[in-house]
Amino acid sequence: RGVPRPQGHRLRAHLGKGAAGNLALMLYALLWEAGNLVDLPDKRIGFYNFCLWNATAGELQCLEYKHLQVMGISLPGMVLARVCVYACLVFSIFYPVFVAHVKCKEEREGWKAILIILIIKMIILSGGLGMFLFQTSQWIHLADFTGGFLALLGTRALLLLQILTAATYLSWAKQHTSVSKPFY
């Protein structure tokens, strides 16, 4: 019908590469960078740190939650943001195994589940990141963001590409399904 047979294989390969890229970026941002989205000499702000430069002491001072609440930062909001972003990491760790299983089985329902998982990952990552930024925007400027934040933005971009790839694959598979050989 106009789409060559190898097209499905390329789309599946792109999903696998995207899954590997997402996992690498998430591990970098949340483990290597310890969840810090801003890591500068005068401030370190992340999912576990909120440190600002104390001119009197001449050093970076990490604030406790009671101080953050006085500053207007919601503890439940920060915890929910952390849970969402780190839940996306957990999904990212197990997702490649699920993708490999679905690739072997070639079940259309499995590919629909992959698309749903990708959308859920995008929602929880975006929601967690959005809640965090909403809570901390008063202390973070655009130029302050460092590698951890950029890695999470890269993760969102890769998730979007994976969603588009999975949707394209489902469309391709629907057009090329035959009674005897599904998905070919």
Rank of each mutant, 00 (worst) to 15 (best):
residue 92 S to F: 02
residue 30 L to R: 06
residue 82 R to L: 11
residue 57 A to Q: 06
residue 35 G to W: 01
residue 59 E to K: 12
residue 56 T to I: 07
residue 66 K to L: 03
residue 40 L to F: 01
residue 84 C to E: 05
residue 72 G to P: 05
residue 52 L to C: 08
residue 62 C to Q: 07
residue 45 I to Y: 06
residue 56 T to K: 08
residue 27 L to V: 14
residue 19 A to D: 08
residue 26 M to C: 13
residue 84 C to R: 01
residue 85 V to S: 03
residue 19 A to E: 03
residue 71 M to W: 02
residue 48 Y to F: 15
residue 25 L to G: 10
residue 61 Q to T: 13
residue 52 L to A: 07
residue 89 L to I: 04
residue 72 G to S: 05
residue 64 E to N: 11
residue 48 Y to R: 13
residue 74 S to G: 06
residue 72 G to D: 03
residue 65 Y to D: 15
residue 36 N to P: 05
residue 46 G to V: 08
residue 56 T to W: 00
residue 86 Y to Q: 14
residue 12 R to Q: 12
residue 32 W to L: 14
residue 11 L to G: 09
residue 17 K to A: 15
residue 79 V to L: 12
residue 18 G to W: 00
residue 55 A to P: 03
residue 65 Y to M: 15
residue 27 L to R: 09
residue 71 M to F: 11
residue 67 H to P: 00
residue 73 I to H: 05
residue 60 L to K: 07
residue 80 L to D: 09
residue 51 C to A: 14
residue 80 L to T: 13
residue 58 G to I: 02
residue 93 I to Q: 02
residue 39 D to W: 07
residue 67 H to D: 15
residue 87 A to S: 15
residue 63 L to M: 08
residue 55 A to Y: 01
residue 91 F to G: 06
residue 94 F to Q: 00
residue 19 A to T: 11
residue 67 H to Q: 15
residue 66 K to I: 06
residue 76 P to A: 06
residue 81 A to W: 01
residue 49 N to G: 10
residue 77 G to E: 02
residue 50 F to I: 10
residue 62 C to A: 10
residue 33 E to G: 08
residue 86 Y to V: 15
residue 60 L to Q: 10
residue 14 H to M: 13
residue 49 N to M: 09
residue 81 A to R: 03
residue 82 R to E: 11
residue 86 Y to L: 15
residue 84 C to N: 12
residue 14 H to D: 00
residue 88 C to T: 09
residue 36 N to M: 05
residue 65 Y to S: 15
residue 62 C to D: 08
residue 44 R to Q: 14
residue 41 P to R: 03
residue 75 L to G: 11
residue 84 C to Y: 10
residue 14 H to Q: 05
residue 43 K to E: 04
residue 44 R to S: 13
residue 34 A to L: 12
residue 83 V to F: 13
residue 56 T to L: 09
residue 59 E to D: 09
residue 27 L to C: 14
residue 41 P to F: 01
residue 87 A to E: 01
residue 87 A to G: 11
residue 15 L to G: 13
residue 73 I to G: 09
residue 46 G to W: 02
